[in-house]
Design a protein around this nucleic acid. Structure first.
Lengths: 147, 147
DNA sequence: AGATAAAAAGACCTTTATATCCTTTTTATG
DNA sequence: CATAAAAAGGATATAAAGGTCTTTTTATCT
């Protein structure tokens, strides 16, 4: 639905780390996965990829873990979506027509286009910082267990 | 993206049949699959299910095939989406949080909700007849090969 | 230096979605 | 009635997504 589960997990992981920014510590994968109720090894993989992409950072060894730098707060959520799911969302047709486009539209192309660009615009505006702020202030949640 | 490929195929199949309504003939699976560029046996399965659900109809034997009745023209596209994909779209969370809801929202719940309900409303309004009309009049296409 | 704790990496497994193949049933028509 | 055309049904195959396990690497502490 819109984005992959993997991608949703990734965003939640990053936002979780962002809420811990002030604590100035490394967060272990066990804690993150437990708190977010995401399979630990699977989340580890996703976070590793985001480390490679420099969205988040990690330190090995005792007292190691994952963390984010202040800079990430300004990152649009869309960036993470593209890193994990690619940019297929830009062209993918509602009706699964490979060549569907504005010049060659499926019967739902125009109607659907409006919503899709709205979603993309929204994801481009929303930053990790905004999401983590909402969570920090208790207006939204990253998992059921965290409220 | 939003709906399954299977579901997209199904909608296209039904709409294709709707464009043939006036011709008053049964359309073979081979023709439908070829014209829509969908794997034949796979589409057959999908259409068979829609026959069971009485969305379309079929006749076996020589000169048999699939066809629709006039009544289907008034059917909302959403009906077919629900028949094939179920109603998971109603609750599924952008960030893959199982219990995400208005009372217990993920950080993107509100923003996303607006778009989702817009899409659902649109799919509830759009009928098979409207889609087939657009195709019939050459304003939209059900496959690249059909323009 | 050695022990330990943690992430990184890679191999492997499971499930779901998508796709194919083969056989059976039905039915129109010569 | 025989035949051929067509859908229906069942079993299987392939691909992609999701998830698990084991080993390797590395930082830190004693």
């Amino acid at each position: 639905m819109i984005i992959s589960k993997t991608c949703g997990y990734g965003i939640r992981g990053v936002v979780y780390l962002a809420t811990k920014l002030e604590e100035d510590r490394k967060v272990g994968i066990h804690e993150i996965a437990t708190e977010l109720e995401i399979p630990q090894h699977f989340l580890a993989k996703i976070l590793q990829e985001l480390v490679r992409k420099k969205v988040i950072h990690s330190v090995k060894g005792p007292h190691g873990g994952f963390y984010v730098k202040e800079l990430v707060l300004g990152m649009p959520v869309l960036d993470i979506v593209e890193m994990i799911d690619g940019d297929g969302y830009k062209t993918r047709c509602f009706m699964a027509i490979e060549e569907c486009s504005s010049e060659n539209p499926c019967p739902l192309h125009r109607d659907f286009f409006v919503f899709r660009s709205g979603i993309v615009k929204m994801l481009k505006q929303k930053t990790i910082g905004e999401l983590s702020k909402g969570v920090f202030e208790g207006q939204s949640f990253l998992s059921y267990r965290l409220n």
